[in-house]
């Protein structure tokens, strides 16, 4: 589904050129549960932004379903962000003073297809937040906020869920809960791409890619998968 070929990325600020990604080659298949790991500044977030159509590459090729993404115009990129992917951020990024329902509905506002607002309730149900449907975003706990963010990422039924340090701002119990939801989404067929610097978070994924100084230093199957759903079940 995803193929990166010799991808370079550099940021130019005035006369200073910062090389962020260096000759990245990567293939990701549909249905994978993947963790991109690395210390801060390693380029893992930039890689996720590129994969998620939020950022462009400096050179090389990015093929999504065999289409060359670097050829996409702004509107096509926006439409891919809208339909193909969903984002979950470390800091939740919910609309302030806005209800759970309206937050989850947000991507549908920008959908060019016919939308069904019943999908909003379905997405809220899938993260077990029906009882918070009309709460305002600032009335929720951190874990609940992140579940709203996941519901928002799901509402357009995307193929890939990107999660950038999804547990970074949560206590461990809520973190496990979030990982269990991501795990179940993966079991339902969604590709989940996780970006984290914590082993504790990465250990639930099936494949771990390590990045350092903009280069992939390892790409291995996770032999010691911990099942987040079982762990979450045990905690209850």
């Amino acid at each position: 589904m995803i193929e990166l070929k010799d991808v370079y990325k550099e940021f130019v600020s005035g006369e200073v050129v910062t090389k962020v990604l260096h000759k990245i080659n990567l293939k990701i298949k549909r249905g994978e549960f993947l963790a991109i790991m690395g210390p801060s500044g390693s380029g893992k977030s930039t890689l996720m932004h590129i994969l998620g159509f939020l950022d462009n590459i400096s050179s090389g090729h990015y093929y999504f379903d065999n289409k060359d993404v670097s050829q996409f115009d702004d509107d096509t990129l926006a439409s891919y962000r809208n339909k193909k992917v969903g984002f979950v951020f470390q800091s939740f990024n919910l609309l302030p003073k806005t209800s759970v329902w309206e937050n989850v509905r947000l991507p549908l506002l920008y959908s060019r297809d016919k939308v069904n607002f019943k999908d909003v309730d379905k997405a809220i149900k899938s993260v077990d937040l029906e009882h918070r449907r009309d709460y305002l975003s600032n009335q929720l706990s951190g874990g609940e906020k992140q579940r709203v963010a996941i519901a928002r990422a799901l509402v357009n039924n995307p193929e890939i869920i990107f999660a950038d340090e999804p547990t970074g701002n949560l206590d461990s119990k809520s973190g496990i809960q979030i990982m269990a939801i991501l795990d179940s989404l993966n079991k339902m067929g969604k590709t989940v791409i996780l970006v984290t610097h914590e082993n504790a978070t990465a250990r639930y994924s099936h494949r771990i890619i390590k990045i350092k100084d903009g280069q992939i230093i390892s790409d291995e199957v996770n032999k010691d998968i911990i099942d987040a759903q079982t762990l979450n079940g045990n905690l209850k």
Binding site: D74, D75, A78, S79, N82, L95, P96, P107, R152
Partner: peptide
């Protein structure tokens, strides 16, 4: 600004 970023991330076009 952050809200605009979020809206763009979920698929808002420039004209939106």
């Amino acid at each position: 600004t952050r809200e605009i970023g979020l809206r763009k991330a979920v698929g808002a076009r420039r004209r939106d």
